[in-house]
């Protein structure tokens, strides 16, 4: 285990994948009251990958970290129930934008000295797809985004990435940042015994202010709106009617 990796996995608390979000009447954001919250699905894939590497003996420790309010402790417990060894909450009640999160994660990485950070490629709330790349920039580490396969070697990491034209394989020097795409793995379900065990695993709470980094929002989100709903059309009876409509009504073929 001498060369085994210490892995940091950032996780975000987001509106659950299955919830249909609604814009608040003041347009200041989406309705979060009474809405089911979950761990970001891409972060779940990142946790799974890290835990698998530890189970294979490639990693020595998996540390989950979340930045946000006290409720993020639930999200961290989800990661612990999947198999993370311990957790850190960087607690802040102000809105944290991707650059602020990257700065906080940089501070945690400098303290914990992991050889690998595995993030989800994007959060399904703001769909920003930025934090992993920003963290890699701040640390001066290489990055492999949109990963579908991760193979650790001796001081290096081979990562297959999903890119627009197909697949690309990168060799990275460690330490490095990887962001997980959908097909990296299928995350396990936490079992009840593991959920119980997770309650006893260490979870450290650190105030964001204690890190002394600039986390003020740089952008203002001034108005939220639901895009005009697409109107449903008609059902056609058969292929002949479909071809006729496409030719003579829609005129698209």
């Amino acid at each position: 285990m001498e060369n085994a990796l210490k892995i940091l996995v950032p996780v975000k608390r987001v509106v659950d994948y299955n919830v249909k979000v609604r814009v608040r009447s003041d347009q200041g954001g989406v309705e979060l009251a009474g809405v089911k919250m979950s761990i970001n699905p891409f972060d779940e894939i990142a946790v799974e990958e890290a835990v698998r590497l530890r189970e294979a003996g490639t990693a020595s420790e998996v540390i989950a970290v979340s930045c946000g309010g006290a409720a993020c402790q639930e999200t961290l417990r989800s990661a612990l129930a999947m198999g993370a060894d311990r957790a850190i909450l960087v607690e802040s009640d102000i809105e944290l934008q991707p650059l602020a999160v990257a700065r906080l994660l940089q501070a945690v990485a400098l303290r914990e000295q992991p050889q690998l950070v595995i993030c989800g490629k994007q959060a399904i709330d703001d769909d920003a797809n930025q934090t992993g790349q920003m963290l890699a920039a701040l640390l001066g580490w290489p990055q492999a985004t949109f990963a579908s396969k991760v193979l650790p070697g001796d001081g290096t990491l081979t990562v297959t990435r999903e890119i627009d034209g197909g697949l690309e394989t990168l060799a990275l020097k460690l330490p490095a940042v990887v962001t997980a795409d959908l097909r990296l793995n299928e995350p396990r379900y936490a079992t009840l015994p593991n959920i119980m065990k997770a309650k006893k695993k260490p979870l450290e709470v650190m105030p964001a202010a204690g890190f002394g980094v600039d986390i003020a929002p740089r952008l203002r989100h001034t108005r939220h709106a639901e895009p005009a709903a697409r109107k449903g059309g008609i059902k056609v009876a058969d292929v002949a009617e479909l071809v006729n409509k496409l030719r003579n009504e829609a005129k698209v073929i």
Partner: peptide, 16 residues
């Protein structure tokens, strides 16, 4: 820009 899988459109202001 769209957020929440395109279900919400948000206006973003930057003074950068």
């Amino acid at each position: 820009r769209p957020i929440y899988a395109g279900n919400v459109l948000v206006a973003v202001e930057s003074d950068q």
